[in-house]
């Protein structure tokens, strides 16, 4: 019981603090890098270029679609499923309301929660397979990618195993997995959840000034 209290008490606050401070540190670090001064006369505005890049890169270039359809399909399946489960599952909203934000919002129905979780799992399995089976992906993947994938999988799995919400130890196991994930997050490529905006924005700004749609 003491272990459960530690997991749900001090360890949660430590993990949350590491996540918030670590992520801020990384983002501020990237922002402080700034960008090189571009002395050329801008042909177009930078900001619209950044916004364009941000949204247009959500779909692959039509010339590459056939080669990346599995990646696109699995990627959206996983990310949308995870997003829905993370922010619209009733137990998560209750937790965020009571422990973090002080306010809640409408939860999705249980059937939608189950479908979203299944989509997330299906997407994650397909992405994991692509990472190990595609020769290029295999070459560019390192331990960080695999650790990030597995920690995400374990956090999701333990959450689903605790779905009955009848066992304290299962809930604590899920929280422990999430805490490990939160601590690992800022120091890994899981940060792409935040940094994709910066990287796409940067590309968009650079090319936007040149009048090119990236």
């Amino acid at each position: 019981m003491i272990l459960v209290e530690i997991i749900e008490g001090p360890l949660w606050y430590i993990a949350a603090a590491v996540f918030v401070l670590g992520a801020l540190w990384r983002i501020i670090g990237i922002l402080r890098l700034g960008r090189r001064t571009d002395l050329s006369v801008p042909r177009s505005a930078a900001l619209p270029g950044a916004l364009k890049a941000l949204f247009r890169h959500m779909l692959p270039h039509y010339g590459f679609f056939n080669r990346t359809k599995l990646h696109v399909f699995a990627g959206y399946l996983f990310h949308l499923g995870l997003f829905a489960v993370l922010f619209f599952a009733a137990p998560h909203i209750t937790f965020l309301e009571k422990r973090v934000l002080g306010f809640g919002w409408e939860a999705m129905p249980r059937w939608a929660f189950i479908v979203a979780a299944q989509a997330a799992f299906a997407g994650l399995i397909l992405l994991w397979f692509r990472r190990i089976a595609d020769p290029t992906m295999r070459q560019i993947s390192d331990a960080d990618d695999h650790i990030g994938s597995w920690l995400t999988f374990i956090a999701m799995l333990t959450g689903c195993l605790a779905l009955q919400e009848s066992n304290v130890s299962l809930r604590a196991l899920h929280m422990l997995a999430v805490e490990v994930w939160l601590i690992y997050f800022p120091f890994s490529r899981l940060m792409h959840a935040f940094t994709f905006v910066l990287s796409r924005g940067y590309t968009g700004i650079v090319y936007g000034r040149r009048g090119i749609t990236p």
């Binding site: 189950i114 979780a117 299944q118 299906a122 195993l161 009955q164 130890s169 299962l170």
Partner: peptide, 23 residues
Amino acid sequence: TAFGAVASAAMQGHNLFGPLFIF
């Protein structure tokens, strides 16, 4: 007591992954 947790986890996991197996 511990088996109660294990069995509950197994049942929830089984119910969740079942539909994926159908696909």
